[in-house]
Design a protein around this nucleic acid. Structure first.
Length: 438
RNA sequence: UCCUCGGUAGCUCAAUGGUAGAGCAUUCGGCUGUUAACCGAAGGGUUGCAGGUUCGAGUCCUGCCCGAGGAGCCA
């Protein structure tokens, strides 16, 4: 456009540039025309803005160029911003210059129209679907949620310690892992950073890791992905109550951050914000025993000793208007590294946080088993290969202390906060059973 | 892995066993304030694949492929 072109302004800041000449760099979102006047709608990644091109007011070449614009063609457009109550957002761009960077041919149009599409088609075009308003809003909320998590831990003196993704063996020994060839040796994609976190906590006191985790379970539900992101804190000298308080603090601060920073996104998504505004501490804390009692009253088939199914989690969450923390599950349904309750050894000192509105478990955590002999016994009961865990046992040989932590699945939190039907929209490129592309 | 549902135009969907259609998108024409703009016209099909039943199959039967929802398991 040359040196004389007006400054580039992001659409989200456009209200500060009323009556000024600006440049917008972006794409054509949609277009409406009515003979001698046309309304292109531009998008630049920060918002949508309506333009106006009046045939009698611009050179014929400009009108023709604007008329031929196709959906998602890339462009630089200049013009004067003006307040206009009839335009979406309250202002519009009177177009005076248009540089088309790439014109999408009309006979091979952009596949995703502003009309409705099926999920298979949209997932096949996920790389393009990300441009739509809903998906853009979700990406923004996800970003703020991740920032809020990091800020929460950073502000409390936690040290980020990255844990490996390629691991020599199962962490918990339960779920199915993705196997990879590691120069002729079998290796597995990490399903949790927790065991390594425990080592890091003994170094820095308070630590967290945040990265992708992998589960090769053939799960096919709206709550499951094969590859998902988890943030996992681990704290030396923390007991179960400390773990619960930390979880409550994290979840409430994430919600508060989204309410503070993502109002436009929540509006785009049509989220009922009042349901989020209630999610402030204290969260209700109930024991597994109490949860079983509630579920039986509600007609669940569940028996003491079993883990909750998705329906049970939903039934339970219906009783509360904010996340609920369920603690002290039977050890038999939980991982080997959880400390038994000294008062009732058949229970584990663990906690699950269940999100409201049927979004299920978003956090699972526990106080860890710090005693060497007990840990060895639990490992034998779980039939875990001793050799692979010798380094982990070292943590109990050399200065073992009470400690605990939890893992929070980012995608389930995003799905809940955004009010989505399915976690597949919470991550840019979901990895699901029977879908590895794009 | 199991259960349920689905696959028809680029997209979203119709079509008693009897000539395969509509809306949107695309092309052409009309329209100076539109809000998923509207009005008129045109082009567009190996009905997921392979067999079978039938005078005749998008429709019924068998097998397979692909997808969706759920269960189990989990965050």
């Amino acid at each position: 456009m040359g040196t004389s072109s007006p400054p580039v302004v992001e659409i989200r800041n456009m209200s500060q540039h009323i009556d000024q000449e600006v440049t917008v760099e972006g794409w054509l979102y949609n277009k409406r025309e009515s003979g001698k006047i046309l309304f292109p709608i531009f998008r630049d990644g920060t918002g949508l803005m309506q333009g106006v091109v009046v045939k009698s007011a611009v050179p014929p070449e400009l009108f023709e160029k604007a008329r031929e614009l196709t959906q998602e063609s890339s462009l630089r457009v200049t013009g004067k911003v003006r307040a206009e109550p009839r335009a979406p957002g309250g202002f519009e761009l009177g177009v005076t210059g248009l540089e088309v960077i790439q014109l999408i041919p009309a006979d091979q149009p952009y596949p995703i129209t502003p009309k409705e599409h099926g999920i298979e088609f949209l997932m096949d075009h996920r790389h393009l679907w990300l441009r739509s308003s809903h998906q853009r809003a979700i990406l923004g909320v996800r970003h703020q949620i991740i920032r809020a998590c990091r800020d929460f831990f950073d502000d409390r003196g936690f040290v980020l310690v990255d844990t490996p993704i390629l691991t020599p063996s199962a962490c918990e020994g339960t779920t199915t892992l993705f196997e990879v060839d590691y120069f002729g040796q079998k290796a597995y994609l990490a399903q949790s950073g927790q065991l390594y976190n425990e080592a890091a906590a003994m170094s820095v006191g308070k630590t967290y890791c945040f990265g992708p985790t992998f589960r090769a379970e053939k799960s096919k539900t709206r709550r499951h992905l094969m590859e998902f992101w988890m943030i996992e804190p681990e704290v030396a000298f923390a007991e179960l109550d400390d773990v619960m308080q930390l979880a409550e603090g994290l979840v409430s601060s994430v919600v508060a951050r989204v309410l503070e920073k993502c109002r436009p996104e929540l509006g785009t998504l049509g989220r009922d914000v009042s349901k989020l505004e209630r999610c402030m501490p204290p969260f209700p804390r109930i024991s597994y025993d109490e949860a079983i009692k509630i579920l039986k009253e509600k007609g669940s088939e569940i028996e003491w000793g079993g883990d909750f199914g998705g329906t049970d989690e939903t039934l339970l969450a219906e009783n509360f208007d904010r996340p609920v923390m369920v603690h002290r599950y039977p050890s038999q349904v939980k991982a080997f590294y959880m400390k038994p309750d000294p008062k009732r050894p058949e229970l584990a000192l663990c906690v699950d946080v269940l999100a409201p509105e049927g979004y299920g478990e978003i956090i699972g955590g526990s106080e860890r088993l710090a005693d060497y002999d007990l840990l060895v016994k639990r490992m034998e009961e779980s039939k875990l290969p001793r050799e692979a865990f010798e380094w982990y046992l070292d943590l109990r040989r050399y200065g073992s202390v009470p400690h605990g932590g939890f893992g929070m699945g980012i995608e389930r939190v995003v799905a809940w906060v955004c009010g989505l039907e399915h976690v597949r929209e919470t991550i840019p490129f979901p990895r699901m059973l029977y879908r590895l592309t794009p």
